[in-house]
Design a protein around this nucleic acid. Structure first.
Lengths: 210, 210
DNA sequence: TTGTTGATTTCGCAA
DNA sequence: TTGCGAAGTCAACAA
């Protein structure tokens, strides 16, 4: 099998699973690894079947050529259209929960607004602490270095606005990588690790009181 | 089908393709979309087959429960171990090419060294321009905002070293996102768009002269 | 083993 | 349509 597109790749001869979907896309799987195929062609594409050879051409001209030496099994089924997948919360939910539980950040803290607008994008949560000082909060599932950079940019801008400056920063995440923590604290940004299960539990508990 | 792990997801009843690999991992594909399954379980995991129900349990306790109403086809094959995939250059190759063609950055530029070390990681290329001023170059396939941040951190550190300061910055990529360009230029970092094919061609051309 | 970065990423949302 | 951030990301590589 040979792929030629943004990169070129070659796959030696072996026994594999070939899947052709209704939209013409092709997947080549081995008997292990993760869900990612060894090689594939994403739709839209066109499959040309020649004797002993399949040539799949993508819309940008990239090609996947499959040389077929032997066929152990060949079946085809019409699956029809698929009803959608339903997913439940991740990061958005963390922001919901924290917005409703600002006391986790400190006594007397209150929410000013969510998605507080700045010229370079919205800050997740804007709060005031017990003394009335503004605090910009960035919420992440996993706190990494780029999240700290993002919050830093917000703080830089916000602190130019004399109406709300000074603005402090809080970096809140389920998990904060050591490098991100070091960078944040070096910049005077407080790090808060959020316990998703506890926060969800507190939320349930509050609901159960009524 | 129901998944319960970091998130919960539910998939309504429909005709689908189920794949079980040799390592026990499970993939659930619909008849379209890309190579990503609707739902899956990565190895290591354990598959328990009960009548009308499969329960797949991952090592962190996440579960994928598949309710089977009807089987249209059921086949099994041993594929054996797989020889590896061979890929050819992407970003490393870009760095190679630019290292050999510093004249693309300006007349009289010369390479000091590749992977120039700093306390927070190596700078892709360190050059001197025609006037002898040091220039740190970050090479990316796609230039995004975090690449600019990375280069900014390098420049901050390098400019503290009186032996080589001042150090200028160049952000070189096949494609530079507008936001990354704005941020870079705001920080005095020059942006250079690299034409991979031309650079490769120039390289070939040089080889053909001999 | 752990962390970091790139990807033929894919996917979803919003402008 | 396009751009951008997140992903149950995956996967390769370095520390």
């Amino acid at each position: 099998m040979d792929y030629a597109g943004r990169l070129t790749a070659h796959l030696p001869s072996a026994l594999r699973l070939l899947i052709v979907k209704a939209d013409g896309s092709v997947l080549v799987h081995s008997d292990g690894g993760s869900y990612k195929p060894l090689n594939w062609m994403s739709p839209p594409c066109r499959l040309a079947e020649e004797p002993g050879r399949w040539v799949v051409t993508g819309k940008s001209g990239e090609t996947l050529t499959i040389f077929i030496e032997e066929v152990l099994s060949d079946s085809s089924f019409a699956l029809g259209t698929d009803p959608g997948l339903v997913k439940d919360g991740v990061e958005a939910h963390l922001q919901d929960l924290l917005a409703a539980q600002t006391q986790l950040l400190g006594d007397g803290w209150r929410l000013v607004r969510r998605e507080y607008p700045t010229p370079i994008g919205p800050v997740d949560l804007m709060c005031r602490d017990a003394s009335g000082t503004s605090v910009a909060i960035e919420v992440k599932r996993r706190g990494e270095i780029d999240g700290v950079e993002q919050l830093t940019r917000y703080l830089e801008l916000l602190n130019r606005d004399q109406l709300i400056a000074p603005v402090l920063g809080v970096f809140a995440a389920q998990e904060i990588r050591p490098q991100a923590r070091v960078l944040a604290e070096d910049r005077g940004i407080r790090c808060v690790v959020l316990d998703y299960d506890t926060m969800r539990g507190a939320d349930d508990g509050a609901l159960r009181l009524f």
